[in-house]
Design a protein around this nucleic acid. Structure first.
Lengths: 336, 336
DNA sequence: CCGCAGAGTTTGATCGATCAAATGCTGATC
DNA sequence: GATCAGCATTTGATCGATCAAACTCTGCGG
């Protein structure tokens, strides 16, 4: 390590003076090593090491007009069951950004409109180079607002009402995930399968369609009991699951783990296997031995960062659909 | 709203020229309104509004040597059961910082040592004004390293081996929380109460002591069955809880919700009440109808921000211990 | 009529880096 | 020996804000 020495911060100029060189040469050693002679370079590097010099982020940002920061909104963590998903995303985004030399600036907002406003403001203040938004829904105001403002960004979540929107996004093919869930239950012997999903959002509609498709494609034919949408809570899930059970369903595919939890309490486990499949593979599902469709959140985050940086670089936008994976689980011994 | 106009960003200088004033006057309107005449001020404000001017964060940071950023490490989210706690903290810190005009810069680190290194680096690059560290443990290397480096910071978690450490911290009085948990079980009629906690960390030792104290203070006397420490998982919790049960315990206080989950699977609910109390009041506890000691994480976060900013301002450090709250819960109907 | 206080405004310097272009130098070329 | 290429390094300007000090008025007391 190097460090200490005097009380003053080292700067390019101070290093240059100390070595009898100019600031620019020091700068070149760091940013453009090729143009500096072998000998000076090593001399400068030693001095840098010894002085503990670090380039000033502010000065660099001012000159280059790159803050090397991406903005990410932190959502009010819901009552927690689904919350973990976005936290995983946040984490993975941070990691992916860091790998590219970028940092994440967090902020809070009360609603989608003020999220977009804050992002535009951050961009105008040159605090951030780009933004990543997530959890898009039909007629989401954010993509349009950000695009208008000329802010480079990417979205985790497609633009539901307009799949050919001009901006970049990554999304998970929830429909395919639900199809896999249905196939799983069918091959486990179930012949009457219901679907249960949250009431709102493009994603849940997509998942519902996945269920229909899968049931329609079954040979021998499988009966799809009526689909129910409801509020996204265990309680509502339990209530709706009871209805499906009365109608003869023996298994249920759910659009969320929270509702799956409720459905699980109605249907229960049989031989350690639950006739329920949840969505998002949250910690609660893991703890309860519940099968669930897992979104590759980490991959999505990596791609979201990649797309955002591509947008900064002015590259054309891209739209990516990635595949989820069904995690089949049985009840762990401890949870009896 | 104002905006658009030309393609160029407005600056203090451009606004000044446009209005026939100097940059400094524009600056004063924003930062020192008192010295500007009433008339000029309103004229300038109108122009600012119309141009959509935003001060450049980089330029300001360069001059003032204040980035208005605080750093926070994002921990690798464990398997999720306890994870939510730190996420709540992150969220609350962001909100509290934002209320003071600060933003949070996130980063990842592999271990505590590299966390400290990264923080010092960020500080030397002038990317951040201060840092907030959390989840301290005995002989934590971070406080010392940051203090040495002259980085203003605060910690969520006391310095266990040295309560009079020179830096600021906030912590939750876990011992008192566990005492409340024991009292709760005693008043519910239990006479043989065991304690079950994770194996490591100053906090869990503190909680264990709280249990001893509470049992010792009981009249009529209550028998404290042997305490067990174990790995912090539901599985290990279940195993350890079985041992306590064999030894005659009818109730268990746990140092974490993960272990409490395991204990719950062994003891089960009786009339909707569980003879188990967990710690941290995580979503899983909520979902399972488990009583738990809740840490006032939001308050801690607010205080941590306050302490960090006080450190930036050069104010003397403070050490704060705040009180947790026992959340008594019964099994919700849906979870049967 | 001069000096002076004070409000309102401007000027110059600075923060620390990077870009773009200029300079000094060595050695090869004709 | 003058010219020129090309490397290594330096100089000047710039990014956009803020600090500190200087300046210009106007009005007032002596």
């Amino acid at each position: 390590m190097g460090k200490a020495k005097s009380g003053k911060r080292a700067t390019l100029a101070s290093l240059g003076e100390q070595l009898g060189l100019s600031r620019q040469t020091i700068s070149n050693v760091l940013n453009n090593p090729g143009v500096v002679s072998e000998e000076t370079r090593s001399r400068v590097l030693a001095a840098i090491e010894a002085s503990g010099y670090r380039p000033s982020a502010a000065a660099r940002a001012l000159r280059t007009k790159r803050s090397m920061m991406l903005a990410l909104r932190l959502y009010p963590s819901g009552d927690g069951i689904e919350g973990a998903l976005m936290d995983r995303f946040t984490h993975a985004v941070t990691e992916a950004a860091q790998a590219q030399g970028y940092r994440i600036a967090l902020f809070c907002a009360d609603d989608m409109g003020s999220e977009a406003d804050t992002l535009v403001e951050l961009h105008e203040e040159a605090q951030i180079d780009a933004a990543i938004i997530s959890d898009t829904y039909p007629h989401d105001p954010r993509p349009g607002a950000l695009w208008e403002a000329g802010l480079p960004f990417s979205a985790f979540g497609r633009q539901w009402e307009r799949p050919d929107a001009p901006h970049s996004w990554v999304d998970v093919d929830g429909r395919a995930g639900v199809r896999a869930a249905v196939d799983h239950l069918v091959s486990a012997g179930h012949r009457r399968i219901g679907y249960l999903g949250p009431r709102v959002g493009g994603a849940s509609e997509d998942r519902r369609l996945g269920c229909q498709e899968a049931l329609a494609a079954c040979v021998p034919p499988v009966i799809g009991d009526e689909e129910l949408t409801s509020v996204d809570t265990p309680k509502a899930g339990a209530a709706a699951a009871s209805i499906l059970q009365e109608r003869g369903a023996t298994a249920v595919v759910c659009g969320s783990d929270a509702m799956a939890m409720g459905a699980l309490s109605v249907f229960g486990h049989r031989d350690g296997h639950a006739p329920i499949v949840g969505f998002d593979d949250t910690p609660v599902a893991r703890a309860m031995g519940l099968s669930s469709v897992a979104q590759p959140v980490e991959e999505a985050a990596r791609l979201a960062v990649e797309l955002a940086l591509a947008a900064v670089a002015g590259e054309p936008s891209r739209r990516l659909l990635i595949q989820p994976e069904l995690v089949v689980r049985r009840l762990e011994a401890f949870a009896r």
